[in-house]
């Protein structure tokens, strides 16, 4: 799918009124391999929805589920809100960082993974938790983290 097709399809699905901007941005990002919205796409959305580019960019950068920077094919978001903090989210950060050899906010050289923080994802009963793409993984420990990373590397999921 070309980039333009992606934008047009998202608008077709979400609707072309001004209030659908967030839904359109979410859909465009969903289809992107690197989980972000490119500058070109922001411009195309601005033209198609007749919304100033500054506002499209303003919305895209306001919401944390949306990104205007290239991310990994697999986005790992570690929760650092209260309940996860109390159950050791800092260790989870350290374990992911050393397993992947990158720091929070970075992308691995092969483009496969990126590491980010997220605020509470509503899985505090299984804290410490993280979101791996769309899936929530809870009760994280070293064994589970290694398993998650291996499964992705080996293409299990």
């Amino acid at each position: 799918m070309t980039k333009t097709e992606n934008v047009l399809r998202a608008i077709e699905e979400a609707g072309n009124t001004e209030d659908k901007l967030i839904e359109v941005l979410l859909k465009v990002q969903e289809r992107s391999r690197e989980n972000y919205i490119t500058e070109n796409q922001l411009e195309e959305i601005s033209q198609e929805l007749e919304i100033p580019l500054s506002k499209v960019y303003g919305v895209a950068s306001f919401y944390s589920l949306l990104s205007t920077h290239r991310r990994g094919e697999n986005v790992i978001q570690i929760c650092n809100s209260g309940p996860c903090y109390v159950r050791g989210s800092r260790n989870v950060v350290n374990m992911f960082e050393s397993a992947l050899g990158i720091k929070m906010g970075e992308v691995t050289d092969d483009g496969k993974f990126s590491l980010e923080f997220t605020s509470c994802i509503g899985s505090c009963d299984v804290a410490p938790a993280a979101k791996i793409n769309e899936e929530v993984c809870g009760n994280l420990d070293k064994k589970k983290i290694d398993e998650i990373i291996n499964n992705i590397r080996e293409g299990v999921k």
């Binding site: 979410l26 919401y63 944390s64 589920l65 997220t118 605020s119």
Partner: peptide
């Protein structure tokens, strides 16, 4: 139905 996009 409308979706939020990650903002408390």
């Amino acid at each position: 139905i409308r979706s939020g996009a990650g903002a408390y």
